[in-house]
Nucleic acid binder design. Structure first.
Lengths: 208, 208, 208, 208
DNA sequence: CATGAATGAGTATTCATTCAT
DNA sequence: TATGAATGAATACTCATTCAT
């Protein structure tokens, strides 16, 4: 009886959950490619293999879907940061994350793209709610860097005069700003930039 | 010549030019606030004080207006870079530009916002033309930094092992990435970040 | 049998009947407030405390629910007419009914409202079935007046030259037409109108 | 030159005005037949011979169209009351109007139907604005009757103890309530009812 | 019996674009 | 040149209905 969950193979809740997941995954791809404003609910549904009405039905409205997507992306990135090459906390984790950020391919790159897109869109007018959501995610990401900076200082790997909050903003900003340039113009030699950025990070964090 | 520019005796070409300028200025504000996808031609016209049909009449299509706007923003930024505190070419010019970027207010800040918005929008799907336009502007901006890096190296202010192209990408990326974070979340202490970024730039560029 | 009706030991048929009654009661409120076209099955279900799917399940379709509601309202009004102040058949019953019609409050007023709404809706295009239903109810209501008019004539309270059918239409029409005006504009002094209408009815029915 | 308005045969304003008139006329027919809730903007446009988008473009929204329609119907009825058989002010005008109301055919009957429909719809929930509009029209209609009642009293044709406001409500209510019954069930002998209603009106107004 | 997930047709609305004045 | 009327495609959203649990 314990394992016999055969007959009712998929309960209502399971169907619902799977539908939401597939819709969000489809929305992620589309936002990365066209942005949330141009994304239509119908194409999300079609890409996910459902009827045109489902996204609005499931998420209440397009804003609801975008909101859920923000949460979904945030979770994915959080998980990735934790799962990323499990390095020593402190300087190594920071540098590893930086290297990882620029080495993503395929799927992971899509999420990066989508996040940058939603970040810009979130600071535009009718998106006050989304902005709060994205800002909250940003604080989570900054907190991760701040924590590792503090750890690095405690371990003597990072110079004590690096203000964790300010340094985190600059690190994350540089990563994203470079990525944004590359999205606009792939003539930029991303590998060279990444390597120089690693050098600079090491130098700046260690110095003094 | 001295007195003739008084009466409303403007030629067709002048009227046309003024209309274009006012429309572009209105579009700039709206793109900064709502993005180009949500911007409507009618609101541009209304904000500029013209009839609803003029933007399409003047620029041919919405894409034409957005295209023209990209050029307009690029020109403004180019002019600003030149007009910015006329410092010594080389390290001073670079640091001055960086300081200036984060000290903008009001009008200038609107253009910064609009540029970031259009940069993100340009790398999305139906905007291949716009992407080329923005990429071209980006190369202009990078070239400015590269030029001053080279000058700085020649003057012995900047360490010779700074690859101008790579360094320019990182500098511009850090500036924009930080600004983007601040647009999303103004809890970030922009002044502190700017000062630390200036320190880092000085340290990294000079080192060795 | 005496004690068995306590526990929640209700048969399927009883549950079904209660569900139908509660759904119809909820639908009545909603029709009175928003009309049957704007009423949604989901809100009926929610107002009745059931799941969104039940109304369609119970009544087959929205049309089925509206049809059942017409019958339900008709029964309620029929019952009210009979239960109303049990006066002498004839003139007194008619005048009592008239007075009662304008003195309703709360619950009863909701049904009056719902009936007027459904009457108007029934004479619109895709409601041929409903129209028959409402027309049948109307004939029942007219028959009640006609019967009492005949009784009044037989008792000598009502002048014999009042054609029962025609008079009934005018009486019921005046009642409903006045009520409709009041629903649209409650500045109308309903009490004064009711009293004058009673006077007129007495005068007209008795005369000659 | 004065009469030579040949070339610009139809100015923008003229086109606009004609479009509005034709759209309202089409909407009137449809509201009379199916009610405003079931009326779609597309069918209004098609019936008027325009594109599907015009009604929303012209009237801003469906609510805007319905609002404009209320005004249009009100104007038509006002005009009809004035133009109606130009009888002596006072009792004759009132009786003439009553007779005219039940003798309408075709076009005029459509407007009557539409007015009754909109009156019921206006007192339903999301139509607070429409309700005010309809209430205002109603007061105009009542004022017409009140005025003629006062005139009749002054001329000695109408008994002075008829309160003009109350009597107007009852007259208009009876007319509309009878018409509503007939719309639901055309077995009602409208001609007989009309004649008896005229008798009653005469009797009641003159009495004492 | 009752629930609720999914469907899909229907509809208001927005807006770039075209064109006549 | 500039205005604004009309078009029509695009799209979010609603909701009755169907069906599996």
């Amino acid at each position: 009886m314990a394992t016999a969950s055969r007959a009712p193979r998929r309960s209502h809740a399971e169907r619902r959950e799977e539908a939401e997941r597939r819709l969000l995954e489809a929305a992620l791809q589309i936002v990365a490619r066209r942005g949330s404003v141009r994304m239509t609910l119908a194409e999300v549904a079609e890409a996910a293999g459902y009827s045109r009405g489902l996204p609005a039905h499931r998420f209440g409205s397009k804003a609801g879907l975008v909101h859920a997507l923000a949460g979904y992306i945030g979770e994915r990135f959080g998980a990735q940061r934790e799962m990323g090459p499990a390095l020593e906390p402190g300087l190594d984790a920071i540098l590893g994350n930086l290297r990882f950020y620029f080495s993503r391919q395929g799927e992971a790159y899509t999420a990066t793209r989508a996040l940058l897109v939603m970040m810009t869109e979130s600071c535009m007018e009718p998106n006050a709610d989304l902005k709060r959501e994205v800002a909250a995610y940003n604080r989570t990401a900054l907190a991760w860097f701040e924590q590792h900076i503090r750890t690095g200082i405690a371990r003597g790997e990072i110079a004590a005069d690096n203000d964790p909050a300010v340094t985190a903003v600059i690190l994350l900003g540089a990563m994203r700003g470079v990525m944004l340039q590359w999205l606009v113009d792939d003539r930029i030699e991303l590998a060279a930039v990444r390597d120089r950025l690693l050098q600079i990070a090491r130098q700046v964090l260690r110095s003094r």
